[in-house]
Amino acid sequence: MSDKATNEASLKGDWALWEVFIRTRGGLSHRHVGSVHAPDAELALKHARDTYTRRMEGVSIWVAASTSISASDPAHADAFFEPAADKVYRHPTFYNIPKNIKHI
């Protein structure tokens, strides 16, 4: 996981950027909280701990090199998400079931 960012790291300039995801407690998914700079994944985890969990905000941390994240383009968000817009039959309320039918 760290190879790409580390290979881009040079001895000059900023350390690579890592995105930080934290599981606040068992049973919840990891959630993006911010980013840190670090030369490798190991230090990124330590920096993330010091920066984002000073008050026991997490039980688990993921860091991912920012360069490895691909994102959808907000300028095309309408077209990108449009296919879901006209499919109301994906929602349970689309179907009319008589009131006397229970547990459905």
């Binding site: 760290s2 790291a9 001895l11 350390w15 030369p39």
Partner: peptide, 12 residues
């Protein structure tokens, strides 16, 4: 900072 970066490059 330099030592940490050098260490990361060496490990990679």
């Amino acid at each position: 900072r330099e030592a940490a970066a050098a260490h990361a490059v060496k490990k990679a």
